[in-house]
């Protein structure tokens, strides 16, 4: 029973990180209809910002905050440079543009910074474990769960209480009508990218605490997981992204914990089969985006 609860905590912690990432993709998709495959590179940028901040002698907490701010600002710049000029073209063009941004950043990181990973030390207190209700929980996991919860709460408050948040939600449900109401489209889209950058930056911190280094290709895998989670939850649906991320975490940890040893090699395939099975019964995802049908 204890081991089961332990695995539940493991799943919550991993699923929470996936949820943050998927939410970042979903916020942008909801207003632009674009899956930003350069989302993972925002995480890489956070990593390099922290690395250079520490190298410049800034205190650790300042470096972390700076890292998140860099991701946020980069997301806004990315929209301005790579997506705004293409806004009126086909959605596929913007998708390709996001791949181009990712590929260019990979090569720039590899050739201007280093192809080798750069070490980012994590604070030693994160290496301890804490006893909660008889369970031994790693500090990193507790921090992940707490940070995810706080971020989701903060985002919900922003989207429900602030004018800009309400405008973003309105744009997510019907962008054209929102513009007719006199809402500035550029402002809403920039806000969506800023939120997605902020979430990518926060997720990057959790990711970096675990992996201990930043390298040019670091963002590739997380964005893939986030995409699966976002589709699973329902593309463009914000609550769906959170549900999808958590479910993906539970599927992965569940398979790793309980699949017999001989089957472990197939767990990725089994995991994705489960995702496909869910989509078979819920083709628009678990919490589909509500769309007005006229």
């Amino acid at each position: 029973m204890d081991l089961f609860l332990q695995q539940v905590v493991n799943a919550l912690s991993l699923g929470g990180t996936y949820a943050l990432l998927a939410l970042g993709l979903a916020v942008v998709f909801s207003v632009l209809g674009l899956i930003n495959f350069a989302h993972g590179e925002l995480m890489t940028l956070t990593g390099y910002a922290i690395f250079f901040a520490l190298a410049a002698g800034l205190p650790y907490p300042v470096a972390l905050v700076l890292g998140v701010l860099v991701a946020t600002a980069s997301a806004v710049v990315m929209e301005r440079v790579a997506f705004r000029p293409l806004r009126n073209s086909n959605a596929t063009v913007m998708l390709l543009s996001s791949f181009a941004v990712a590929a260019m950043l990979h090569v720039l990181f590899q050739n201007l910074i280093s192809a080798r990973p750069k070490a980012i030390p994590a604070p030693q207190f994160l290496m301890r474990n804490v006893e909660v209700l008889g369970l031994q929980i790693g500090a990193v996991q507790l921090v992940s769960i707490a940070v995810t919860a706080i971020s989701l709460l903060g985002l919900t408050l922003f989207l429900r209480r602030s004018t800009l948040g309400i405008a973003t939600r309105a744009a997510a449900s019907d962008f054209n009508i929102t513009r007719l109401m006199g809402i500035n489209a550029n402002l809403v889209i920039s806000t969506a990218f800023a939120i997605s950058g902020l979430l990518a930056g926060i997720a990057a911190l959790l990711w970096l605490f675990q992996r201990g280094s930043v390298d040019p290709l670091m963002g590739f895998l997380p964005v893939l997981k986030a995409f699966i989670a976002a589709v699973l939850g329902g593309l463009g649906s914000l609550s769906g992204a959170v549900v999808g991320g958590l479910l993906l975490g539970f599927i992965e940890v569940g398979l790793r914990a309980y699949l017999p040893d001989g089957m472990q090699a197939y767990r990725e395939a089994i995991g994705l089969t489960i995702v496909i099975a869910v989509l078979f019964f819920y083709p628009s995802g678990l919490v589909p985006r509500r769309e007005a049908v006229r």
Partner: peptide, 13 residues
């Protein structure tokens, strides 16, 4: 023998 997937990031299980 335990197996992992490269880049899986989470080893808690």
């Amino acid at each position: 023998t335990l197996e992992f997937k490269m880049g899986q990031q989470d080893f808690s299980a």
